[in-house]
Amino acid sequence: MKKIYVFVLIIFLAISVYSFYAYNNEKDIEQDKEITVILAVNSNIVKTDSKVLKGYESVLQEEGVAYRIIDVYNLQHLQPAEILKNSPAVIFPDRVAENLPQEIAMWLHDYLEQGGYSLIVYDAGSLNKREKHLGNAVFSSLLGFNYSTFKEDRRQAFHHGYLEFLTEEKRDFFQIPLGKTVDGVTLSGYHYGKLSYSMRNIEVQHALRDEDIYAWAVVEDGRKIPGIVKRNIGKGSLFYVNLPLGAMKIDADDLPLRAVLRTVLFNFAKVPHVLNVPDGKGGIVINWHIDSNVEWFFLPRMIREGLLRKNIPMSFHITAGDFRDNPGDEMGFMVTE
């Protein structure tokens, strides 16, 4: 009998200690005066796979944005009004926010009603605690469409397709360079034509207005489903992007994540940030792209002619491999240690 009492006492103490630290952690977050963006994640996922989260962190750091990472199960217990005082935007990334409690949707609704901004990416809130696909994604009621359709038709739940902006003006608003599009509106590579991305099937439950759609996801059969969408809720706005932005970032496609974060955080949420310029001063940084073996000839020539010198701020992006367009063409800028 004594053993049972001891066991119960240990459990009680463990719960008490956890509750104490959780309560104080919540109070620290609410009372912090620093302006930050929140990355809302499932800590259990992050423990086993943090690469995607690090992709988001990398872009935010480079863009001079202060941020904090909060477990979504802690976030749902905080007061939206208190969080909004110092965190104008909450991001639910792909992969590390797949499993979310249903209650977070109500929390987010209150946060948006009071003037917050939020970004939901790809699969956030599409699984339950047992990692099974939900019949309706956690945020479907807020967005007016369901992006978790696996249970209904597994064959049609996921697609590959192109991201097509509605207009050139909306392309420019999301800071997409003209050279990164085909026909002025469809996202592409510089030399590889339209880029095909992983996309989720979407069932639209409430009609979307043209002004709320920035881009379509054009899937294999030609259908157009939401790609980048904004829904106004109260004084705030909710965004959904039908691309795995973080996964694309760690696979070397940086542009979509950076463009979305810059647009949502700077243009809408007005998040203060440090400009990423040398010494905090305005100016021009020349970015050189080294993509093929012809540069072994031109780089030394540029140095001889004074085009590359220490007093000109510049950066280099190098595609380092033995081929350029196709394996075996031996046209790459091969770099060895």
Rank of each mutant, 00 (worst) to 15 (best):
I4S: 13
Y5K: 14
I11L: 15
F12P: 06
A14H: 02
A14K: 03
A14Y: 02
I15A: 03
V17R: 07
Y18W: 14
S19W: 14
K27L: 13
K27S: 11
D28N: 12
D32G: 11
K33F: 06
L39Q: 00
S43E: 15
I45R: 06
K47I: 02
K54R: 14
E57I: 09
V59H: 02
V59L: 03
E63W: 00
V65W: 00
Y67W: 00
R68P: 03
R68T: 03
I70F: 14
V72T: 13
Y73H: 10
N74T: 08
L75S: 03
L78Q: 06
P80I: 13
P80Q: 10
A81W: 11
P88C: 03
A89T: 01
I91F: 02
A97P: 06
E98H: 11
E98N: 08
N99Q: 12
N99S: 11
P101G: 07
E103W: 07
W107A: 05
H109G: 07
G115L: 03
G116W: 00
S118F: 00
V121Y: 01
S126L: 06
K129F: 15
E131S: 12
K132I: 10
K132P: 01
L134E: 10
G135T: 14
N146P: 11
R154V: 12
F165I: 09
T167R: 07
R171E: 09
L178G: 08
G179F: 11
T181Y: 13
Y190E: 11
Y192K: 14
S196T: 15
S198D: 07
M199A: 11
Q205K: 13
H206R: 06
I213T: 02
V218C: 09
G222Y: 03
R223W: 04
R223P: 06
K224H: 07
G227D: 03
K230D: 02
I233K: 02
G236S: 08
P244E: 11
L245V: 04
A247F: 15
M248D: 14
K249C: 09
D251V: 13
D254T: 11
P256V: 01
R258F: 06
L261S: 02
V264L: 08
L265P: 00
K270I: 01
P278V: 15
G283Y: 10
W288Q: 09
R301Y: 12
M302W: 12
I312T: 10
F316W: 15
I318Q: 07
R324C: 12
R324H: 14
N326A: 10
E330W: 09
E330P: 01
E330M: 10
M331F: 04
G332S: 05
M334Q: 09
M334H: 12
V335I: 05
V335C: 05
